[in-house]
Design a binder for these strands. Structure first.
Lengths: 195, 195
DNA sequence: TGTACATCAGTGAACGCGCGTTCACTGATGTAC
DNA sequence: TGTACATCAGTGAACGCGCGTTCACTGATGTAC
């Protein structure tokens, strides 16, 4: 096959990023191979460098993509008129702390799925930068979900505490998946954070 | 160099496991290479298979080793006579949620450092099994630290909630290390869990 | 509008490197007589 | 107690595989005249 039109190429590029964001979340950046990602988008691996400078660059873009999707979803719920903040919060938490989220990291929270990869990236690596920016956006959305009765500073603190607990729960549940403890952790944290 | 005595060989084997537990916590199992681990213990990589059947086997042993060290330390504090449970809990949490722990994963909590590797192991993989067993031991120790005023069931729940929050905080702090957010997260969670 | 040329998305093979694993060999340790 | 033999921890080279990256080439797309 020869050259695609600019339009088609852009679409394929987006497919590559979306596919990468799924594969990296599922397998981690190291084990998510370029060849597999490209073939998911219907391309051969050789075409990769027509679109990206390096795997690291793709990882950063894929991370940003996943974060912005997740955060946009939450903000959309918060922007919906006539819905109470507390019910948005409880809905988001119930979904986040579900067995379904535990079992489907590929389409789940990038904050949980990519934390180890970001931690092991170099201090000024592209992935680390994308992760930091992404998490800040996510923290902003969670902050908006905190009870309106709280003072601003307290809302911020509670948001960070909540994120740590959510993310720790899903991380642990995945790490012990297959053992009853996985469900027990999710249940205990649901009790702590919901209602 | 030729054959070592049984005694020396056992010592070297233990050094290999200890070194592996550090390197795997720092770099992850995939990036912690056998050659580097062996040379840390003063051996060449070829000797590896005189001691272990596979890298996976070493990863499981290293994980068990790290968990049992951490848990034993906590249990020793709890077993010390004349120390209040609440002060043990607060001391453990302060150390866990410190910048020093964030910056030294190699000698830190295996539950945090190896969660991603365990999650991506096969359901009946050796590492996953070791992680599950290790986390259960750790959960038991944390349960002992919970306020004695609580009913047994509640202590268990609180222990799991506490572990999720601790582990999530350190995981996030490492993932955004270099940004002020890393300190902010640790500080917020210290406030929530200590006193 | 047509035509010739330049561009560049995509292909498929190959390169290079790291790393887990294997293997023939060495020589000190351990053991049977 | 000696002595001969078997064992096996450790060495160092090599193998094999996966994977990121490079590259010559193809042919449709886009553009200048």
């Amino acid at each position: 096959m020869g050259r695609s039109s600019r339009e088609k190429a852009d679409l394929k590029r987006e497919n590559v990023v979306a596919g990468a964001s799924r594969l990296f979340r599922e397998l981690g950046v190291d084990r998510g191979g370029i060849a597999e990602i490209m073939s998911t988008a219907g391309l051969t691996h050789g075409a990769f460098y027509s679109h990206f400078g390096s795997k690291e660059e793709l990882a950063a873009e894929a991370s940003a993509y996943a974060f912005s999707n997740a955060t946009a979803g939450w903000n959309a719920l918060l922007d919906a008129t006539g819905v109470e903040v507390s019910s948005v919060r409880e809905g988001v938490l119930a979904k986040y702390l579900s067995a379904s989220h535990r079992d489907n990291p590929a389409i789940g929270c990038p904050g949980a799925a990519l934390a180890a990869d970001s931690a092991r990236d170099t201090p000024d690596g592209l992935l680390r930068k994308a992760y930091i920016a992404g998490l800040k956006g996510m923290a902003g959305a969670v902050e908006r979900m905190m009870p309106v009765s709280l003072a601003a500073k307290m809302r911020r603190k509670r948001a960070l505490q909540t994120i740590a607990t959510m993310l720790g729960a899903i991380t642990l549940a995945r790490a012990v998946k297959g053992d009853p403890l996985a469900d027990e952790i999710l249940e205990a944290v649901r009790e702590a954070l919901i209602r």
